[in-house]
Design a protein around this nucleic acid. Structure first.
Lengths: 332, 332
DNA sequence: TTGTATGCGTTATCAT
DNA sequence: ATGATAACGCATACAA
């Protein structure tokens, strides 16, 4: 790689003159600037980023710690983060915790050595369940700003970007009750141990309670045979006329199982799940979804974090990105 | 952040002694080592990564350029890359080209300033269609090693990790013909302009040809109403008794449409698609898939690239990661 | 207008 | 066994 020193030697001028010329300093004559820039172009000179980082003590790089990227929600958030970071001339270093506390902690520790100017984190399932988040506070204590999104730890004082988990499920359930006159609404959950899962369930419970209906919650663990459990439930509880799925996969499975036992969708059974672009594509009939603005969450996270990095005094805030209920079709 | 200089001052010894002590140099007395390490621990000293990078002229960071991460194939490859990179003590900087040549070119240029030691790239759709890949060669000319995976440009001389696109579809088609005695096999494609799409179609054509059957190819563009096209095709061509989908979504849609028009799956119609873990979960009845070892592709890509970075003399090679046909259930 | 010197934090070479 | 010095590449305060 070409360096300032090499350019200087070739042009028989000093390194600092070259540096100033390339930075278009007013102290340098136009003639010199032209000579310098021409040679720099010719040799494809690019200022060494590492040296600039050392000098400025800023990396213009953000560490992004995600539980996984196979889940389309996090994939789309990452898309928003990457696009927005690029727009602000920041790079992102991505680490996947695989839902493991240990991996998450190690990643944060490893990057807390000057590698990044700040962190964007959605905590691992394990960290959230065990309520072990000292490593995150440690980053904050080291003066590395942190922004948490989606899976959030309330006790940690930092910027947050969250979904309206409670409200969106409340409204979805309310819609089923008020508009569709459904009476037996089942909630299907495989994420009840996460902060977001808890909030969604509460939204459902409140809506059910407000209408004097009876709550029905089917909790599925990861290892369960999801298909079989939903199938059996629908068989054993034929009065069920609506399902709210609070994740992005059990809703589609519910539709498949309902069809299998001869239910007409949406006449006999109305299904609302969580999802994104592709979700609706993969179900037939189309599933209604609570569409989380994942891309916007990513965008907003970068914006807020960079605001923090730039400003001297920054007041901590939490931003709620509203979801949108996207109905499959008119279910009348 | 604590620095060597600060430690040195506090201990009243020189910076170089501190540095050597921390690196467990044999030149330093055990007493000093202990004093230094104790203080370093106490102040949570971590060597500044940027300074180390400048000194060593190596970043231990790899630039990963992906077309998208919303496609589960690339998401899973990224998972493999991240895990494997971490294991080798490398970080990854992730850039998404969004299938755009311009974005891809810009990302590579921006990182070609010492930010990364090497690149892992799957080229954007646009770059592949327009056969414009000078920017990739430019990185290689700048002595930054490049590894391409999946979407590969044959003309570029670099390591490659690819899927057995031709072979896997050949075998899937052959399976439908030989074992299931299918006679009217439709290939559904929405990626025929990509290198991988072309190879998969060729695999299908060869298998059909070898059995003296008639090829039927339904090409769908992104903007098409995929459901309607498949639906209409099945309606108009009721003799169709098998479908090979060469992407990860049209197969599931085909199953949904076939059920809709009353076909019994797999009796009347056998469907094989491309996919990964979640794909089979979302279809009912289960779709058979060509399971691309996406995670392994990521792992292998890191391995090969780091081999290249480490060794002085490195001979260029292409590794084929075989896919595996995962049948949904015994279709007899 | 140009050049010299200094420092970012680390490591390596060469004294002492 | 310890310390002084230089160097990585860049940017800037200060001299000339």
């Amino acid at each position: 790689m070409t360096t300032l020193k090499e350019l200087a030697k070739l042009l028989n001028i000093s390194v600092s003159t070259v540096s100033k010329a390339l930075n278009d300093s007013h102290e340098i004559s136009e003639v010199t600037k032209r000579r310098v820039n021409e040679l720099a172009d010719k040799l494809n000179y690019k200022p060494n980023r590492i040296a600039q980082q050392l000098k400025s003590n800023r990396t213009k790089t953000i560490g992004v710690i995600l539980p996984t990227v196979t889940n389309p929600f996090f994939a789309e958030v990452l898309h928003g983060i990457e696009t927005s970071a690029t727009k602000h001339k920041y790079d992102i270093i991505v680490c996947l915790s695989d839902e493991s506390l240990t991996k998450e902690r190690r990643s944060i520790e490893l990057l807390s050595n000057g590698s990044v100017d700040g962190f964007i984190i959605a905590v691992a399932r394990e960290s959230q369940v065990e309520e072990e988040t000292a490593h995150i506070n440690s980053a904050i204590n080291n003066k590395i700003p942190v922004l948490m999104f989606d899976r959030v730890v309330n006790e940690i004082l930092c910027d947050k970007v969250v979904v309206d988990d409670f409200q969106s499920v409340y409204e979805a359930t309310e819609y089923l009750i008020e508009k569709e006159k459904r009476k037996h609404i089942l909630l299907v959950s495989n994420i009840e141990e996460l902060s977001v899962g808890k909030l969604r369930i509460k939204g459902y419970q409140k809506a059910i309670e407000d209408s004097d209906l009876k709550p029905n919650i089917l909790k599925l663990s990861k290892v369960d045979d999801v298909e079989k459990h939903i199938h059996d439930y629908l068989k054993n509880n034929p009065e069920t006329d609506a399902i709210v799925s609070i994740d992005h996969v059990t809703g589609i499975i519910a539709i498949n199982m309902a069809k299998k036992i001869g239910k007409n969708i949406p006449k006999d059974l109305s299904v609302i799940g969580f999802g994104y672009e592709h979700t609706q594509l993969l179900s037939s009939p189309k599933i209604s979804i609570v569409h989380q603005k994942a891309y916007e969450i990513g965008e907003m996270s970068i914006k807020l974090l960079i605001d923090n990095l730039m400003s001297e005094e920054h007041e901590i805030k939490t931003i709620v990105v509203p979801s949108k209920l996207k109905l499959a079709e008119s279910t009348k």
